Simulated scan of single mutants.
Amino acid sequence: MEPWVAQLPLALRAPPDQTLDGYVQPPPGLCPQLQALAAGESGSVYLHGGKATGKSHLLLATCMQAQAQGRRVAYLSLRGLRGRLRDASGGLDGAALVALDDIEVIAGERSDEVALFDLHNRLRDAGCSLLYAAADAPDALGLSLPDLRSRLAHCMRWTLPVLDDDGRAELLRRRAAARGLDLEAAALDWLLRRVNRDLGSLTALFDRLDRASLAAQRRLTVPFLRQVLGGQGGDRADV
């Protein structure tokens, strides 16, 4: 297996909240469809949304649910693979579910677009279920290969919204609860004013807080958060 292809469970260590149930404010019907895909329902699903909408969360969660049911899965982010997709995708054949993230990266690179078109056809012919994620809808990605646009446009498509403030608060509570962290209400309010909506950043943040809380045997209070996060001020800064 090529080093850039991460197959579960060997190469990916998922946090405890990397689940479909852990996704906050999903569009109605999305999670049941992804659960069906994980369970073996044939099909192709395409998720799109801006930064911090949880695309990677949903891809990884679907892969893990499928793997837990004994299906062979593969997840591949296209970031860093522009011009090399054909080689990088060589290890995906034989999987029952393949999740391809960051599709927008290859837009305009004809060799990659042809490689993805060929891969889509090959995997679908083999009965593989496909799950895609990109920053925008297929017609808005700037893809130069009409046949690839057509294949992606025929997937079941879902638009992922950015979390509102209530959703962000719920996400923070879930992140803390999944790790057994005692997050005070005042600490939650403090974090809401300082963290961005990026789900990946929030996962990394709670990994950091989990380690610090365990080491110090401290609850997540505002003074402790200031200590761990370096006394950051300002609103919605990256942590």
Score class of each variant (00 low, 15 high):
G230V: 06
Q67M: 00
Q65H: 03
A74Q: 12
R236L: 07
W190S: 08
G233E: 06
A215G: 08
Q67A: 00
L202I: 11
G29A: 01
K51M: 12
R86Y: 09
A215P: 08
Y132L: 04
P32Q: 02
G180W: 04
L183T: 08
D17A: 13
L8A: 00
L116Y: 07
N121V: 07
L229S: 09
L116F: 07
R208T: 08
G233R: 04
L214K: 02
D101F: 11
R124E: 07
H120E: 06
L148D: 01
A137L: 10
L229V: 13
E2A: 15
G230E: 03
Q65G: 00
A52S: 11
R173T: 08
W190G: 11
R157W: 11
A186F: 04
P146Y: 02
G180I: 00
A38S: 05
A126K: 02
P3S: 07
A215D: 13
P27W: 07
R197E: 10
I103C: 12
L30V: 10
M156N: 15
D166H: 09
Q7W: 06
H154N: 14
G127Y: 08
R173F: 06
E109V: 15
R173L: 05
G167T: 13
R218K: 11
L47H: 04
A212Y: 10
L76E: 05
G54E: 04
R149Q: 04
L119C: 05
V73H: 03
D189N: 12
D147T: 12
D139V: 14
Y23S: 02
H48G: 11
L123I: 01
L171A: 05
